[in-house]
Simulated assay, not measured.
Amino acid sequence: MEKFKAGMVLGGVGDALGFRKGRWESCTSGRKIQEELESLGGLGALKLDPDQWPLSDATLMHMTTAQALITDYWSLEDLYRELVRLYVGAMVSLQGRTPDPTTVEGCVHLKPHNVLLAWHTPFNEKGSGFGAAAKAMCVGMRYWQPERLENLVEVSIETGRMIHNHPTGFLGSLATALFASFAIQGKPLGTWGRELLKVIPRAEEYCRKTIRHMAEYQENWFYFEAKWQFYLEERGLEKEGQNKPLVDNRYDADETDKTYKRWSSEGRAGRRGHDAPMIAYDALLIAGSDWAQLCRRAMFHGGAGEATGLIAGCLFGLLYGLNQVPSSLYQDLDKRERLEQLGEALYKAASAEKSIDK
């Protein structure tokens, strides 16, 4: 249970650090961000509070998704209706937090009063952003057991495509949900990327079964897989048994930015559903249990640090708990109590389901 709570809380910490009230969100240089951090006294001197280090809309959407997942739903359709209701309601609380335009636009197409089609939204050419990936770790926490993989695939895709109805967007939510489940299961980190590519055919099969937008999906499906295949080859992780990443020793802030831009689709690292989980995963692989190094790679780079920070922070918490992290970073964190409550409730919901099965 403690690691579930740590996952939710450290996701918030990673988001707040990468966001810095919108200031670092728009900075394109990791070196400048890290120099500014040093001028504040370094990571260890920071005290995160709701005024100066608020959560961005990404964590609020993750919390909203978690809220739906802990309700007492009878069927997945009931869960999707509840998600629609909560997502539409969340648009009010996102005011003043510079919400992602795609998220706002996507919510407009949700139909909370249409019982049958509430979560059926049109294909969205602009729906390839990180928003779906950044709110799906809780799906993996709810359905973390290997025997729940079918639920994980379905729920991560549906939660993703409600607002980001594009394969690059909703396959990102599959990736982060899957990685969260792997963290809880204790799967070796070096295998996660390969395992993701093995699960993607299940996602395609599910989408075919639902008979929605397959023509548009097929035109865009290959991109996500190709980018991940390229990443695994670059890090020397594409073959079974290769679990240690190949990393250049000169991997400083500038090199990090160059590498991340190469993985991106438009030169803005972490903006899309394929590279936000990729950057978070890469940072975890290289940093291990070193929280400070994780922050340098996942939160303090010249890209969407709030999204990559949220994903990496959550996965770090699920893997290692809070012990490696200075308490000043989470003691007064924005909405910390609620994040802990959601982590505990997700743990109980997942455990209850397992005991019912037995």
Rank of each mutant, 00 (worst) to 15 (best):
F179L: 14
G22D: 08
N243E: 13
E233H: 06
I184D: 00
D49H: 15
Y260K: 04
L116A: 08
L76W: 02
F300C: 01
Y217F: 04
T256Y: 09
C314P: 03
I184G: 00
D282H: 13
E82M: 06
E337M: 04
H109W: 13
L110Q: 10
A283G: 03
N114D: 12
T256I: 15
E234C: 10
F230N: 14
G14A: 09
L322A: 12
A136S: 13
Q229W: 04
P54Y: 14
Q229D: 06
Q34A: 01
P99T: 06
A177C: 07
K47E: 15
L79N: 02
R85A: 02
G7D: 03
E36P: 00
A132S: 15
Y347S: 00
E216I: 05
L149N: 01
D252H: 14
G302N: 11
C314M: 09
Y320V: 13
K209G: 08
L346T: 06
N249S: 15
G44E: 12
C314N: 13
A352N: 06
K32E: 08
G12S: 05
G172W: 10
M162N: 01
A345W: 00
A350M: 00
D290K: 08
H113G: 04
V104F: 07
H274T: 11
R208C: 01
E77W: 04
F130S: 12
P146M: 12
C107V: 04
S156N: 00
K187S: 12
T65N: 06
L94G: 04
P201K: 07
C107F: 02
Y143Q: 01
G12A: 04
E77G: 02
K32N: 03
R202D: 14
K239D: 13
A280F: 08
V104K: 12
T98W: 09
E337F: 05
P122H: 06
A253Q: 10
L76K: 06
K198Y: 12
L333H: 08
A16L: 11
G321S: 07
E340T: 07
H109P: 02
C27Q: 08
L196P: 12
G127A: 10
Q52H: 15
E225H: 07
T65Q: 04
S26I: 15
L86F: 10
L339C: 14
Q341K: 08
L94W: 09
H62T: 11
G22R: 10
M8V: 02
E147F: 01
G11L: 05
W74A: 14
M8P: 04
E225F: 02
K354R: 12
L110N: 14
V9D: 05
F179Y: 14
V104P: 06
Y281Q: 05
K47P: 05
A349I: 00
G288S: 04
G172M: 12
H113K: 09
I311Y: 03
V84E: 07
A133G: 07
A352S: 11
E306N: 13
L152Y: 01
Q95R: 11
E125W: 10
G270K: 15
L315D: 05
R338V: 13
M137S: 14
T259M: 11
L69N: 02
C295W: 04
A136T: 06
V108R: 14
I157H: 00
T98V: 07
G267F: 07
K239E: 15
R161H: 03
I184L: 06
